[in-house]
Simulated scan of single mutants.
Amino acid sequence: MIRKALKKDYSEILKLNRNDVEMLSPLDDNILGKMDELSEIFQVIEEDNRVIAFILAFKDGCDYWSDNYGWFLDNYTNFIYIDRIVIDESYRKRGLAQELYENLFNYALKNKYNLVCAEIDIEPEYNYPSIRFHEKMGFRQVGTRISKQTLTVSLQVKELK
């Protein structure tokens, strides 16, 4: 069910991102292509020949331009940073995010990464569902920061053992 994202998936990935853009940064074909090249993990879940979810993550030390990624780079080593995960609204609460995260955790352990990092919006709108999900998945807050978009984010890590 989970597979590597392909260029042919971009239009559906961009549509999913647009539907949740208030919690994400905007994407276009060019930016997504650059992120794809730099990514450590870029996977989708497909059902009935349609992308219904995706995850995009980067390893430490790559040339990714995100300020939040940069914060983790300044404070940690040997990590994978989850830039975004999006589940089609009609497929939420079915365990797909958990599947994508567990798949990423297994990859990270196999490749000897110590941490998985993520950030979650907490101001101006507190993202309760994401905070609860990350707590359930074993993440803990290690800091906060105000991003360029004037959002405050909770910086989270999960230690892998």
Rank of each mutant, 00 (worst) to 15 (best):
K15D: 07
K15W: 03
L16V: 05
N17H: 04
R18H: 05
R18C: 06
V21M: 06
V21D: 08
E22R: 13
M23Y: 15
M23S: 14
M23W: 14
L24Y: 11
S25E: 04
S25G: 05
S25I: 05
P26Y: 06
P26Q: 10
P26V: 12
L27V: 14
L27H: 14
L27F: 15
D29I: 09
I31V: 08
L32E: 09
L32W: 10
L32C: 11
L32Y: 08
G33W: 03
K34V: 14
M35W: 13
D36R: 13
E37S: 14
E37Y: 15
E37M: 15
L38C: 12
S39R: 07
S39I: 07
E40Y: 08
F42A: 06
V44P: 12
V44R: 05
I45N: 09
E46H: 02
E47W: 01
E47K: 01
D48L: 04
D48G: 07
I52V: 10
A53H: 14
I55E: 03
I55Q: 05
I55T: 10
L56Y: 13
A57S: 02
K59H: 00
D60W: 00
G61N: 02
C62E: 09
Y64M: 05
Y64K: 02
W65L: 02
W65D: 07
S66H: 07
S66Q: 07
N68K: 05
Y69A: 10
Y69S: 08
G70I: 01
G70N: 02
W71H: 02
W71D: 03
D74N: 06
N75R: 03
Y76C: 09
Y76T: 07
T77K: 01
N78I: 01
F79T: 01
Y81H: 13
D83K: 12
R84V: 15
R84N: 15
I85H: 15
V86R: 12
D88H: 04
D88Y: 03
D88S: 05
E89A: 14
Y91S: 09
R94G: 12
R94A: 14
R94H: 10
R94Q: 14
L96N: 11
A97C: 12
A97L: 12
A97T: 10
A97R: 13
E99W: 08
E102G: 13
N103E: 11
F105L: 01
F105Q: 00
Y107I: 00
K110W: 00
K110F: 00
K110Q: 01
Y113Q: 00
N114W: 00
V116N: 00
A118M: 11
A118G: 14
E119G: 10
I120R: 08
I120T: 13
I120W: 06
I120M: 11
E123G: 04
P124C: 06
N127R: 03
N127H: 04
Y128N: 10
Y128C: 10
Y128G: 13
Y128D: 13
Y128I: 13
S130G: 12
S130P: 12
S130Y: 08
I131L: 12
H134G: 13
E135A: 09
E135P: 06
E135K: 07
K136S: 10
M137W: 08
G138C: 11
G138W: 04
R140P: 06
Q141G: 04
V142N: 06
V142A: 11
V142T: 11
G143T: 11
T144Q: 06
K148D: 04
K148C: 05
L151V: 09
L151Q: 10
T152E: 03
S154F: 06
L155G: 12
Q156N: 04
Q156P: 02
Q156D: 01
K158R: 07
K158Y: 01
